[in-house]
Design a protein around this nucleic acid. Structure first.
Ligand code: MN
Ligand code: MN
Ligand code: MN
Ligand code: MN
Lengths: 205, 205
DNA sequence: TTATAAAGTTAGACTAGTCTAACTTTAAAT
DNA sequence: ATTTAAAGTTAGACTAGTCTAACTTTATAA
């Protein structure tokens, strides 16, 4: 629910079910149990919303997920495209000491390997939307990649092939009016063309 | 079942139930499902045994458990008394790559932080019973601690307090006939008395 | 050899989580 | 303002895993 929530913080039962691979009656049934635990604010026939306490619970799991991803990359040598599936499981380990130790060994990082913010131990999360998309910047500008709007496996492999990572410094040379694609330079690469689809998902500053 | 099995490789349903906190009918019911998966050799009213494939499956989970314990101690700085509860959860992560990476970073260890053998990736496990108990050695002998017969939290904390760990070299000074307790020297400690209960659980060579 | 206690199994019930089919509400479109 | 399609809920069924109570088998001891 947390990650599917729109700007108003709500998700439809059908979208949630689709994303979880579960029928809408199952969503309906489970969401009421979560409401009984004060994790979901449930109003019949209305879009689903987390309560404050539900958002906090979600943020704390996301914290464990992102700390794990960071640990896997920084301390265990995995690639950023490998860590999500592993973290998806490790995030469920119940041991504050385990994650506190990761945090300490990593030097209290604020973002995960994909540039997404790591919620605080209190469950507050900084909003990523402050970052701008590469596609919104102008030719002539020099920018640095600080995050990804989405980080699917395909996208990460695409970036790997082109040697694009967090902190890569790009110079924008040209924008194609027709399809919005950008031509950029970075590192020792010259005149690399990035489609609008790609440029929309690269967050820069 | 694996760890409760006796010398003939069998456990009683009641002991298994007690250890798992579950009734004997639940054991009975589950054990037949495991038999259908060829993990348990089930004969009505007879003691329970794992099949070869059940033993292998068990050994592979124990491998993950012990690799995790080793990683937690060696790479994350936990004490040997802290790692079991965490490993009890991490052992269930399904990711060969994750445990393969731990193994590599640790330099392919053969024993866990308590001296218990780590099963091979193929599921073979070396028998710990080749080790001798401290209580079977004689006054005048010098021995080195290589394992623990059991590693409950209380026992580990007891050893911590006395500065006894794996690789500690002990000189046996005296055995009390009455209660079997041993007086030993080690490191800078002199005339330390260890009860028979303790000496039975220290494995040495 | 038989009686009896312990161990194990069967029967039947209950909960959590899921499903499909049928029904109700909401919201979009005439 | 009505109609209708989409979204959501209810009803009822099913599975996995558990329990207690009653029954059966095994093993021990007279
Ligand atoms: Mn992730
Ligand atoms: Mn997960
Ligand atoms: Mn352990
Ligand atoms: Mn476990």
């Amino acid at each position: 629910m947390f990650s599917l929530s729109d700007a108003e913080g709500s998700v439809s039962a059908s979208e949630l079910g689709r994303s979880l691979g579960v029928s809408t009656p199952s969503v309906s049934s489970m969401v009421r149990k979560l409401a009984a635990l004060d994790l979901v604010a449930y109003v019949k026939y209305q879009p689903l919303k987390l309560t404050a306490s539900g958002r906090k619970a979600a943020a704390l799991v996301i914290r464990k997920h992102r700390l794990t991803e960071m640990f896997l990359v920084e301390k265990m040598g995995f690639g950023w495209e490998e860590v999500h599936v592993i973290a998806e499981q490790v995030e469920h380990v119940k041991s504050p000491a385990f994650f506190a130790r990761m945090d300490k060994l990593l030097g209290y990082p604020t973002v995960d390997p994909h540039g997404s913010p790591i919620p605080s131990p209190e469950g507050t999360i900084t909003d990523l939307r402050k970052h701008q998309k590469l596609s919104d910047r102008q030719p002539g500008e020099k920018v640095r990649i600080v995050g990804l709007a989405h980080s699917s496996n395909d996208f990460l492999l695409y970036l790997n092939e082109r040697g694009i990572a967090l902190k890569t410094a790009l110079t924008i040379l040209r924008r194609e009016i027709y399809d919005g694609s950008l031509t950029v330079n970075y590192d020792d690469k010259k005149d690399v063309v990035l489609s609008k689809v790609v440029a929309d998902k690269l967050l820069v500053e």
